[in-house]
């Protein structure tokens, strides 16, 4: 660095230090209070878990949106299989067919003979 640059830096430093020395009492008092607040942080309990609060809140909100608000294919009503079976078993037609089982077997035999003939 050139000598003139060094001289400029030195002069700037002197002016700056003077301005530091001129700080008023109210400002120095505020700085002291700030320092005490900072030192109190050394005794504060760890707050690491607080970092996860926003992420947890976002995850909960996303879960609620997906499960409650957004409509999905789950809304289409499905018929349980056992209910369908019960309807077939309890239907009147089915019982009649079971009662005339021999008649239907005879018709089936006739149709087969006609096909052969």
């Amino acid at each position: 660095m050139k000598q003139s640059d060094e001289k400029l830096a030195q002069e700037a430093k002197v002016l700056f230090d003077e301005s530091v020395d001129e700080l008023d009492a109210a400002t120095l008092s505020t700085l002291n209070q700030s320092r005490q607040k900072a030192l109190a942080e050394l005794h504060a309990p760890p707050t690491q878990w607080l970092r996860w609060v926003p992420a947890a809140a976002m995850a909960t909100a996303a879960f609620l949106v997906v499960t409650i608000i957004l409509p999905g294919p789950a809304n289409i009503p499905s018929v349980p299989a056992d209910v369908t079976d019960m309807e077939i078993l309890l239907g009147e037609d089915s019982i009649e067919m079971l009662e005339d089982l021999e008649f239907y077997a005879w018709i089936d035999m006739l149709e087969q003979e006609n096909d052969v003939g």
Binding site: F16, S19, V20, L23, T27, L28, L31, S34, R35, A38, L39, L42
Partner: peptide, 14 residues
């Protein structure tokens, strides 16, 4: 830490 902050605070403020 107290000494460090007390030493640096006024220059830092300016």
């Amino acid at each position: 830490l107290n000494r460090f902050l007390a030493e640096v605070e006024r220059r830092a403020l300016r």
